[in-house]
Amino acid sequence: MFNYWEADTVFHRANPIVKVLLTFLLLISMFFTKKVEVMVVFFATFIMMFWLADTPWAKVKGFARMIFWLVLITFLLNLFYSEEGKILWQFWKLKITEKGLYDSIYFSLRFVNLILLVQLLLGTTQPIDVATVVGRVFKPLARLFPSAGFAEMEIMLLLALRFLPIFQNEIEWLIKSKRARGIVEDTFTKKVDGIVGMVVPLLISAFKRAEELAVALELRGFDPFKERTSYVKWEFSMADVVVILFYLILIFAVIIQKKMIVWDI
């Protein structure tokens, strides 16, 4: 889930600053519309973008299955919620109205789109780049309010993103270790029990790791308030133009639908 995949595409080459800022803009603009049609346009465009970004579909399968259940719950919750509009189907106190159906399609699609949008960013941008961009964006704030913790935010986000795969690895080790010791979890209750049993060791190792990391950072003389340099130089390229075009089309779709711009020729 939300994994980065290696590839050489327009989306991978594009400037991380551009990608993060546009993703943020699009996220906000998505909440400005209530039209299913716009969401369909978003969805279609996202699929096209994923296709252009060389998505390893086999790996996405499990992810898609997980989203499916969440979307189904979203859909069902919204389906029976609305009282307005023409009643399409009624049984005892449960009823599906026209508006309820429309809204539930809208909300499920928006939910899928939000996930796709974030996955597109994190699938094509290294976590370290995302964190660096966030750090740069917050830099002026860090200067203005030195005690508010904006300076530490970059390293915090970076570590959080960096440690996700490590924890995944740790969970795999715990499962392996149980099997190595001859503990076979073959029934459902045993499996659930086993998952609960892994929480404590994971927390312990997380705290241990955090402590070690803090010491290591200290030893290397890390100071969040110092000016940081980087060996990577981000430049504006053709890839960025392509990515910007994609995102701008979507943002314009919202603006036009909202009639924020009136075409008057």
Partner: peptide
């Protein structure tokens, strides 16, 4: 039941 293994680092095996 037949084969058991001790992993390389104890912290991966004890929890």
């Amino acid at each position: 039941k037949k084969v058991l293994m001790l992993l390389q680092s104890p912290e991966k095996q004890l929890f």
